[in-house]
Amino acid sequence: MARYGMALDYKNCINCKACEVACKEENGVLLGADKHRIWVGVGEIEGEYPLLSIVSNTFYPSQCQHCDEAPCQMVCPTNATYYGEQGQVRVDPEKCILCSYCMNACPYDARYVDDRTMTVDKCTFCTDTRLERGETTTACQNTCPTKVRIFGDLDDPQSEISELLRTREHFTLKANLGTKPKLFYLT
């Protein structure tokens, strides 16, 4: 069985937000500034014009880290949050009671409330749309103009993502928390 992960060549990111729109169109995500499964993180620039810090304006595309040790799963009182067969962190809306513990527990702020179902929603790695149809990648990976993402099976040593993680330096976000994220940022 595969174990899905994603590598991000994040220095390619130009903050165009194509991934965000592709995700919304693919997965029927609600509109609204706080309703998204995917985002690009960027801080206000440091320095005074014209002596500005370019590095303070780095773009960090992000989404659910699909942690192997997911705090959101640990705190869920109804087991609505569960691990999918390929290691995806999923939410079962039938079981979710919107206690929002998971939203507080998630160190990456990857969850939001879907106002239609009044349950918590998040990135699924397009499991119930693209992957279920037999496609091999996510909407965000596919559409990206500057090709930030590589999606694949971490357990397959022959996969492109495994090869990349063996050969390129990378880091994970908030690694000190021990959540074992499956999003890898290539440096």
Binding site: N27, G28, L30, L31, K35, R116, D128, T129, R130
Partner: peptide, 10 residues
């Protein structure tokens, strides 16, 4: 007000 996009089917 908020709008909703269409989820693709299988």
């Amino acid at each position: 007000k908020i709008e909703i996009t269409t989820k693709t089917g299988t």
